[in-house]
Structures are given as C-alpha cells and as structure tokens.
Design a protein around this nucleic acid. Sequence first.
DNA 1: TTAACTTTGTGTTGTTTTTACACAAACTAA
DNA 2: TTAGTTTGTGTAAAAACAACACAAAGTTAA
Lengths: 238, 238
Amino acid sequence: MLFLHKLRMINQNIKIAVDAIVFGYEKGTLYVLAVQQRFGELADRWVLPGGFIKDDEPLLTAVERELKEEAGITVNYLEQLGTFGDDVNRDERFRVISVAYFALVNPQNFVLKADTDAKDARWFPVREVPQLGYDHNEMVNLAHQRLKSKLTYQPIGFDLLDQEFLFSDLENLYCSILERDIDRRNFRKKILSFEIVKETNKVVKIGASGRPGKLFMFDKPKYQQLLKENFQFEIRFA
Amino acid sequence: MLFLHKLRMINQNIKIAVDAIVFGYEKGTLYVLAVQQRFGELADRWVLPGGFIKDDEPLLTAVERELKEEAGITVNYLEQLGTFGDDVNRDERFRVISVAYFALVNPQNFVLKADTDAKDARWFPVREVPQLGYDHNEMVNLAHQRLKSKLTYQPIGFDLLDQEFLFSDLENLYCSILERDIDRRNFRKKILSFEIVKETNKVVKIGASGRPGKLFMFDKPKYQQLLKENFQFEIRFA
DNA sequence: TTAACTTTGTGTTGTTTTTACACAAACTAA
DNA sequence: TTAGTTTGTGTAAAAACAACACAAAGTTAA
C-alpha cells in the first residue's frame, strides 16, 4: 500500500467498473446474457451487463444493481471471475479497470426486461455470442472455461436448473456444457453416492412420451454440512 | 458498461492499488513476504508489498514494480488472486480497491533488500504472520488456501524450489504445505508417471549424512506440450 | 387393443488406479 | 566396523472407474 507521505501525489485517473457474465441454461443450450447500449456514439452495440461503481458501493452490490437495472434479473450464483486491467486501452474513452463477475441463473429468472439503461437485453447461445464491445468476448471465454471446470468440482450445475429437476435434466446439462457423452448409469450412481440430491416423491412426464420420471432436488444444507466434514464433490467421466 | 450520456456524471473517488502475497519455501517452512511501512502515521506497521498503480500502467506491471521497489525481488510465478473492494472502508484514509496477486519465489530470490519505500522487508513463517494493516491478513489466508489447492492440480511446487532439487525436497514441500503425510514410494511413482521431471546425472549429498541423491529438474517445455494434448496434472494422497 | 416408439430406471464384470507396506544400498560419524 | 541417516525400489489387496443391455412405464398411431 502507499505510504502517507506520498498521499499528495496520488492523482489517479482511472475508473472502476463491474461487468457480469451471466449464464442461463435451457434444453441443452447454454446462454449468455448481453445488453444493447442505448446511448452515445456506440449505441446499439452489444456488451455485457455492468457499469461503474458508486463511491460508497461494495463491488458485489454494484453487480447486483446493474443486473437489476439493465436486465431485471436476480442471479442464483455469483462469484468474482477476475479483474481486467492490463490492457490500458480496453475502454476507448479513458482508462477503466473492470472487475468481472461470473453468474448463474435458473430458468425462473430467464425472463428479461431491459430496463432504464439498456435498449435491449438478450440471451445468446454461448456459441453464437456476437462481437461485444470492449474486451467482453474475452471475459465470456474466460467465464465459459470457468463454468466448465467448476462443473466438475463444485455442485454448481443445480444453480442452472429448476429447484426440482429430472435426473435426465442434470445429465443433459453436464453432457451439453462439458461437450461429452456421459454414461447414464455411471453418472446417476456417482451423483447419488454423494448424497447431496434428495428424491421428492413427485413424478412427472415432460415431453408427451416416455416413462414419467421422479423429480429430484439439490440438498444444499446437506452439502454445506458435508463440506465441513472434508467432503469433495468431483465428477470426471470418460 | 456505462453509456455515454452518463459520462459527465462519472466522478468516482476511488483509488486502485495492487498487493502481492509472495510465498517462499525453505527447509519445510512456508514463508510470506511482508514489508514495514516507512512513513506516515502508520509507519512501522507491517503490510503486504503493493501500492497504487499509475495511470498508464498495466496491473501486472504495477505488481512487479512494487515488488522490485519494496523488496528488491523478482518472482517466479504470478497470478491474480482476487480483488478486494466489498469493504468500503478497508483503507482507513479513503476508498481503495485492491487487486491482490499470488506469487511464488524460489530460494534464489529469497534474499531481500528493503528499498526506497519500505523500512524493512521480511519473511514470516505463514503460521506466524503478525497482524498486518488493512485487510491483508485476509488476503494471506485466501492466498494460502489457493496455494494448497493449486499444489494438487498444477505443478506449481517447482516454482518454490531450486531449479535442481532432490526428490525428497519436492516430497517435503508437499508434505509441509499440505500438512499431511505422503508415502514416499507412491509419491515418486506418481510424479514420475507424469514424465514432467527429468533426472540430471548429478548426484549430491546435502546434510552430512545418508546416501547421496540424484538431482531432478522440472521439464517445463515438456509440461507445456503435454498441456496441449489434454494432460492433467493431479496429486491426491491419503 | 396391440404394436411401435420413447424415456426412465437399474447391476455386474473387467480394468485401472490407489493405497499400504519393508528392506537393501550408499554414505557419515563415532 | 557398527550404528545412524537418507535414498531408492516392487508387490499385493482394495477401491474406483468404465463398459455394457434390458425391463418398466408411459404415449401414439394403426
């Protein structure tokens, strides 16, 4: 940290922003949220939701606020991804350092309402994200990698699903995000062995064909307790 | 990101700093680098090396510069740890958001020379780090956890050792940092199975007793090549 | 009502990986 | 030359993983 005698010399001209990479998942496709700028020379350009933080505002609060303002959503999972500040010209106007956040929403929050600040807010399939402003495509890529790797060592997939889900939903989520085949029996065995999902006694049929399936839920309290006991979630499949 | 019509409203009063948690390792003990502030009301207080970034300076450059200035060292490994900006009063003077970096040095760089800005620079055993200024103890804890977990899935331990090392050095490093016993035979088998360490043909005796051992080296090019081929480093022991 | 189709649900076996474990070789110091 | 220290090495039992197929419960259409 700087020392007091230097204080007078501090005259930084750098702004701080937050940006969020929000993932949503539906029927085998992973989506990323982007918003369209409303004003300025660069209006109409797609970017990640985000914005400058206020002087007295914690970083996390700023992200949550921007997500509300620009897309009208509340996320299910939120963690810091990383801070982008090595490219001094990443913003064309003046120097901005941005703290990027990684977020997941479940389908309940999948409905968007572009609000005051954004002209539009849309979900893009992660493979079809258009060119975004600033270094936001880089952020998306980094977040996408993070999602893939976290999926294997943290039970984070549940945050992309409804509270109650079919086992096949979970399995398809893993298959499609990790882009590999998974043996249904081994997957089920593995997940159940952790004892962090509990079976409801509801049975539903989804598509209009096939045998109805049981609904399951993530048992979060149980998971948190297991964590204290040195439990390690991990999924690795051939 | 903010939109242009709002530009006039941006008048952030927040400063940005970087801080580094630098780990060194010697003879079974893990050390963290701290510096003593030289000036100001809070002189003499121990803190992590770091400081404010310059307007046109990439974050990484700023950390490297501060490490040079305050402790006269160059690190062996450097990555972003996280950004601390949720506690609006983490700095008692005014709002500072700090990007924390995680760094490793090898014993060559273990010699410190407190330079212009710091009164003193010292290695503290990680278990005996004194109370530091700001939220720096939190940073140390987070970095310590990161080190422990990274050790198991990235060949990062080599960055804490001399370029040439005995197998027992590596083993002891793992034992002491992860705080668990490791079976010497299984460990050696595992590491060798990755084929990322090569044997030199030097043989040395270190302490003045016992059978001399071969020196080994980390084969970084080989490792980087294996990475491209989907190689996964991983160490997990009972 | 039955046959064809779709999706859920379940066990076993062979293979690979992990764990546990002990003794000889090379040197030093007394 | 004996006792002490550190390096170096193999095997067997246990656990985890991978591969694999068929019956049950429903729908739809002939």
